[in-house]
Design a protein around this nucleic acid. Structure first.
Length: 250
DNA sequence: TCACACACTGTGCATTATCT
DNA sequence: AGATAATGCACAGTGTGTGA
């Protein structure tokens, strides 16, 4: 079991938290279609590649990744990172003070990590406010938007590039380029990523990895494991062991 | 915006290793 | 022993560079 990774769902603030402690992180280019990710570097440093730029973040610094923004993340040596995930559909309703209080609570009582500095709390509040008032500025072609929604909600369906391009009234060559420009990933990468996200959501309802692989649209468990590890950074069984739901309060 | 060629990646299947 | 993880390989499908 990977004891350096913890996936926590906090029922009180309705946010998902991912904690890595002294880990070697390596996440190649990907995006999150439905969440804002706010990352707090606890120690060590990480390299974040986003919007064509590569930046190094060190202990105490905070970064934010809005939905659909392609990015890659690598630790420089070992690093500890806390990521707060906010659902984009609920971002406008979040209670910033409530989330900050929960983060402080979980940070000190659940993770035993000391306390966050005043500057970190201020930066966190600023980023939460950014999520709350964020509005998507990118214009998306309606046909691509529709396909993106299909792939997000039903990633398990089999639909090849030719069919997708046809439904968007484009040649497959143009469609792939257009999709990547507007979504950040190729259609295929986007579909695989959503299959894995779906698997993460329904993990606890499924006893068997082979069943889960079929249910999420993979041919078999071996491919499911391969992609799961590539995208999540853990094998499915390690992920299951490191996931927990927190509902206790002050 | 489209099409071609080619490199790259994913699929389907089989097999073996490791873990519980 | 059964479940899960990892790897190999051939083929099909996808993505990208380039030119029109």
């Amino acid at each position: 079991m990977n004891k350096n990774s913890y996936y926590i769902y906090d029922k009180v603030s309705k946010t998902e938290l991912v904690l890595y402690t002294d880990s070697s992180l390596s996440y190649p280019l990907h995006n999150h279609s439905s969440i804002f990710s706010i990352g707090i570097i606890l120690n060590g440093s990480i390299r974040l590649c986003k919007d064509g730029y590569s930046s190094i973040y060190t202990a105490g610094q905070i970064f934010i990744i809005p939905p659909y923004v392609p990015h890659a993340l690598y630790s420089i040596g070992k690093a500890s990172l806390l990521t707060i995930c906010i659902n984009k559909n609920k971002a406008s309703e979040i209670d910033i003070n409530k989330i900050i209080n929960r983060i402080i609570f979980l940070y000190t009582k659940t993770f035993n990590l000391g306390s966050l500095s005043g500057t970190q709390l201020l930066l966190l509040a600023e980023n939460l406010s950014y999520c709350k008032h964020f509005s998507a500025y990118k214009s998306v072609t309606p046909q691509i938007k529709e396909l993106r929604q299909i792939l997000e909600f039903s990633p398990e369906i089999t639909i090849n590039i030719e069919k997708m391009a046809k439904s968007a009234y484009m040649s497959k060559y143009h469609f792939i380029r257009k999709f990547k420009k507007e979504t950040g990933l190729t259609p295929h990468q986007f579909q695989i990523q959503n299959k894995i996200r779906r698997a993460q959501r329904i993990f606890n309802n499924s006893e068997n990895l082979a069943e889960l692989a079929i249910e999420t649209g993979f041919f078999d468990q071996s491919h499911f494991i391969r992609y799961f590890k590539k995208i999540v950074g853990l094998t499915p069984s390690d992920y299951k062991k490191s996931f927990k739901i927190v509902s206790h309060t002050f």
